[in-house]
């Protein structure tokens, strides 16, 4: 199992299934538990954006999520066949604004950009594709096997 993939409809009700999918990948790969939350957050933010804004009147987009071990880290790719939308083109929210003038939305993609090492968007074959990567430090916490992902064999679990 080198890559891990799931496809769901872009319906908010599918978020728990995606989170479970990510957690399953994480524990099978023996990755440091403390680093999972960053990917859980990225998955939630991007998926919820697609679920809330990517639906046409007659159809919810199809969303494919792939996780893979890459050199020293993990990549998360989220692809949907909804209308073209580049979340990275959104203006960053003002996180220094006063309480009164602070908007209550728009933080999701901002958080993802802050927490991931790399985030890239492309429109590919009629789909939106967002690719996120983050290096995981070998001493980040949990258990044996988390030391150096680049030296892990291709098969695991």
């Amino acid at each position: 199992m080198k890559e891990h993939r799931i496809t769901v409809r872009g319906d908010a009700a599918n978020l728990p299934a995606l989170t479970a999918f990510l957690q399953d990948f994480w524990s099978r790969a023996g990755l440091p538990a403390a680093a999972a939350a960053t990917f859980e957050l990225a998955l939630e933010e991007v998926f919820m954006n697609v679920a809330m804004h990517g639906s046409r009147a007659d159809a919810q987009p199809r969303v494919e999520v792939s996780l893979a071990l890459v050199d020293g880290g993990v990549s998360l790719i989220i692809e949907d066949d909804g209308p073209a939308f580049d979340p990275l083109a959104l203006a960053a929210p003002d996180v220094t604004a006063s309480l009164e003038s602070r908007p209550v939305g728009g933080l999701g993609v901002f958080l993802v950009r802050q927490m991931m090492d790399g985030v890239g968007y492309q429109r590919l074959g009629g789909c939106n594709q967002l690719r996120m990567t983050k290096h995981l430090p070998g001493n980040a916490g949990a258990g044996a096997g988390s030391a150096d992902l680049s030296k892990r064999p291709g098969e695991m679990g």
């Binding site: 939350a37 859980e40 957050l41 939630e44 933010e45 919820m48 309480l99 009164e100 602070r102 209550v104 939305g105 933080l107 999701g108 958080l111």
Partner: peptide, 20 residues
């Protein structure tokens, strides 16, 4: 609390606005 994302931040923000 083990985990929060932007939807949860929105809950905190709306609550602070109401309380203030």
């Amino acid at each position: 609390l083990e985990y929060i994302a932007s939807a949860g931040l929105r809950v905190m923000l709306l609550t602070q606005k109401r309380c203030k």
